[in-house]
């Protein structure tokens, strides 16, 4: 239990997808102009992470990792399919995003219209694939830990995109040097927010 709480806090604050690893920056910069759409995209990311990470974890555990195939036939204990993990992870993610897109289009047309082109872009959102690869690299022990990690990084991403959207809404009233407007100032604010988030570094439960 302690371990799970620790992973949760760590993945939201200390190892925040955006401030510590810059994952998912493309959609983060493109969709953060108003709080409403930003929060929609953030929720979509949390949702997709919660679906894809456990699936990829099971795939890694029972098919891809070195010796993972031993449960089918002990003779295959020596096989190592881990070189296939990129291609299979991205396939799972693309399929899941397609599914989410269809569900959202059917049951929440308003949200679908406001997210527009960015929903398919979640498939190539680095935060999703990045979380899967981190999950593979860090060797989480069981599926509860993986789900906690998925929820935590999703919430961390959500916090980041909603807070920058709120700041950018206010920024449209301020007097910024012309070449800095838009992209430049968004980078610098993200950097400053990242420095603020660094104060969580080293927190353990």
């Amino acid at each position: 239990m302690e371990q799970i709480a620790n992973i949760f806090v760590k993945s939201i604050f200390v190892e925040n997808m955006i401030f510590a690893y810059f994952l998912g920056m493309c959609s983060y910069l493109a969709v953060s102009k108003t709080v409403k759409t930003a929060s929609g995209l953030g929720l979509a990311v949390i949702f997709v992470l919660l679906i894809t990470l456990p699936v990829n974890y099971l795939l890694d555990r029972y098919v891809l990792a070195p010796g993972a195939l031993a449960w089918i036939n002990p003779q295959w204990a020596g096989t190592d399919l881990s070189f296939l993990s990129f291609i299979l992870f991205i396939a799972v993610i693309a399929a899941m995003v397609q599914l989410v897109e269809m569900v959202v289009e059917k049951f929440a047309p308003a949200l679908y219209n406001s997210l527009g082109i960015f929903l398919p872009l979640i498939a190539v959102n680095c935060a999703i694939l990045g979380a899967s690869l981190f999950m593979q690299e860090r060797d989480y022990r069981n599926i509860q830990e993986v789900i906690t990690f998925a929820l935590g990084s999703g919430i961390g991403w959500y916090l980041a995109i909603v807070s920058i959207a709120a700041i950018r809404e206010k920024l449209s009233y301020s007097n910024i040097p012309a070449p800095m407007r838009g992209l430049g100032i968004a980078f610098i604010i993200t950097g400053l927010m990242g420095i603020a988030f660094m104060s969580f570094m080293g927190i353990q439960i």
């Binding site: 401030f19 510590a20 980078f187 610098i188 990242g194």
Partner: peptide, 9 residues
């Protein structure tokens, strides 16, 4: 990490 963003800005 945050300095990379500021340099990029």
């Amino acid at each position: 990490p945050p300095m990379a963003l500021i340099i990029l800005g």
